[in-house]
């Protein structure tokens, strides 16, 4: 999951340096480095802090709300694993609505090449490789698109640091990122990360015509394994349709006995 990753503090020299830099006045930083370099460094640092979770399982409820406030629910289970030198792998298994129960979705994310995605259709027992171009499409009818849901690597965007500003009780950096993929539904995104822990607080999504399409807000952060931060309530509001979707995460477990063999097409067929 891209924006809601655990964040591990790596006591590398780079980390220490960038933390020192962020503690200072951003204008002095800009004097030393370009806004693009700073933006990239923030993204890399945020990514570094997400690393080291090993693997995880969690339950997810999605609440979809339309303009009139009517709700429908989706329930799914997730698992993810870090792969050395490559993107993460994740698997989604749907429990509700009942007609899609057992449908499962496997993603092998990659840094420099397109992600690989397979869909398992339990009625036909069929595994179908699907196009990773389906980035902008709605995920299960929600306001989250596929690209909002699957792991994305630092390499998939270009960055530009914009400013620092307060976000609630915290102080946030604001970075603009532009998807490199033509298939993305977005022209750009504005990302608010808190200065202290580099947790994603808010993202504004701008569509291909540069209209402010959606806003995502992440709340209820909880720390696991003493260093991994995960948001348990993530709300996506679509400003054009008035619809919204909420992700409610629960039952996080980290460093389980999952291995890469649990993220193959064979494992997809027995997912339940």
């Amino acid at each position: 999951m891209r924006y809601f990753r655990p964040k591990s503090v790596l006591a590398t020299l780079g980390t220490v340096l960038s933390v020192l830099i962020w503690a200072g006045d951003p204008t002095t930083v800009l004097a030393a480095e370009s806004a693009e370099e700073v933006g990239l460094e923030i993204a890399i640092e945020a990514r570094e802090r997400q690393k080291g979770y090993g693997n995880f399982t969690a339950n997810l409820i999605m609440v979809l709300r339309n303009k009139r406030g009517q709700e429908s629910r989706r329930e799914l289970r997730l698992r993810g694993i870090e792969i050395d030198g490559d993107g993460d792998r994740s698997m989604f298994v749907f429990d509700r609505p009942r007609d899609v129960k057992g449908t499962a979705f496997l993603v092998h994310a990659h840094k420099d090449e397109p992600d690989e995605q397979w869909l398992y259709l339990p009625a036909l027992k069929r595994v179908k490789r699907i196009s990773s171009s389906k980035q902008s499409g709605s995920f299960m009818g929600s306001e989250f698109s596929y690209e909002d849901m699957v792991t994305s690597e630092v390499e998939k965007y270009t960055y530009r640091y914009v400013r620092n500003e307060p976000c609630g009780d915290l102080e946030c950096t604001v970075t603009e990122r532009v998807p490199k993929s033509r298939d993305s539904g977005y022209s750009r995104q504005l990302v608010w990360l808190d200065e202290q822990e580099f947790r994603t607080m808010k993202i504004e999504f701008y569509d291909r015509r540069n209209a402010h399409l959606k806003t995502m807000v992440a709340e209820d952060y909880e720390r696991f394994l003493d260093r991994i931060w995960r948001s348990k309530t993530i709300t996506m509001t679509n400003h054009l349709t008035g619809k919204s979707s909420v992700l409610l995460w629960s039952d996080f477990e980290f460093q389980t006995d999952l291995d890469s063999g649990d993220f193959t097409q064979t494992a997809l067929k027995r997912a339940r």
């Binding site: 036909l124 027992k125 069929r126 595994v127 291995d259 063999g261 193959t264 064979t266 494992a267 027995r270």
Partner: peptide, 23 residues
């Protein structure tokens, strides 16, 4: 259905009535 690890790979056994899709 049962499965386990064998080196870097994994084995799986299914015994009984099942449906299989190829294609």
């Amino acid at each position: 259905l049962t499965y386990g690890d064998v080196g870097d790979s994994e084995w799986e056994l299914r015994l009984g009535f099942d449906r299989v899709f190829w294609g």
